[in-house]
């Protein structure tokens, strides 16, 4: 292991010395070049579209085989955790959206009215219990092709989900807020209005990880 470590160190030194940074964005992050898929050996590539500082290593093996079987899915936030029940959460996660309504609408409606909010009649979306359960049980996120994205800001309604969206308050509002959103005010916000770290204005937008 010790010898290997020296080999790695030597290799790392070699790589480090010969690496030339190809590009930087304003954050100082390394950006890959576009030459890596043009079918010719150019820039600092060691082979056609491989090697060098910018492209995949030559000879890197990607196993393309296999059938991939579904284990989890997510569309809108907190759907399964709220409306799923023990015994069918796993099944819900492996059900395709086109079949979700058929299998889960009645169970979601029952969960809403029996367990979560027996007083529910309608909400700010003007959904009666059956309409609300229909909406929820097909767990896909609507994403508007154009314009501002917001899960719910009172103006942009269900046009996607951005990092800043307080989806928990929106979900609580839908469940407990009644027709005009004013019912049960103690239940319609968890009073955590924003992330603990500011998001980045540029890609990848999520904040840097916490370090010890």
């Amino acid at each position: 292991m010790k010898n290997n470590r020296y080999k790695f160190l030597f290799a790392a030194v070699l790589i480090s010395v010969f690496l030339v940074q190809c590009d930087d964005d304003e954050n100082g992050n390394v950006i890959f070049q576009e030459t890596c898929s043009d079918g010719i050996q150019n820039a600092q590539e060691e082979g056609i579209d491989c090697g060098g500082p910018a492209c995949e290593p030559c000879g890197e093996f990607l196993d393309l085989s296999g059938i991939f079987v579904q284990e989890d899915q997510a569309g809108r936030p907190e759907i399964n955790s709220i409306f799923g029940s023990d015994g069918f959460r796993d099944d819900f996660n492996t059900t395709v959206p086109s079949q979700m309504g058929f299998f889960y609408k009645d169970r979601f409606q029952s969960k809403l009215l029996m367990d979560i909010n027996p007083d529910y009649t309608t909400n700010v979306l003007a959904y009666n219990p059956e309409e609300f359960a229909t909406f929820l049980s097909t767990d896909v996120l609507w994403l508007a092709e154009t314009g501002e994205t917001s899960y719910y800001d009172g103006t942009n309604i269900l046009t996607g989900r951005s990092l800043e969206d307080d989806v928990v308050d929106a979900t609580l509002l839908f469940i407990f807020g009644g027709a005009d959103g004013t019912e049960n005010p103690e239940f319609t916000s968890d009073n955590v209005p924003a992330n603990d770290k500011p998001f980045s204005p540029s890609f990848p937008y999520l904040a840097e990880p916490f370090q010890e």
Partner: peptide, 13 residues
């Protein structure tokens, strides 16, 4: 506004 339905899945080999 034109809408896409979008979701994410994880699948195991």
């Amino acid at each position: 506004r034109p809408i896409y339905n979008v979701w994410v899945e994880t699948k195991r080999r």
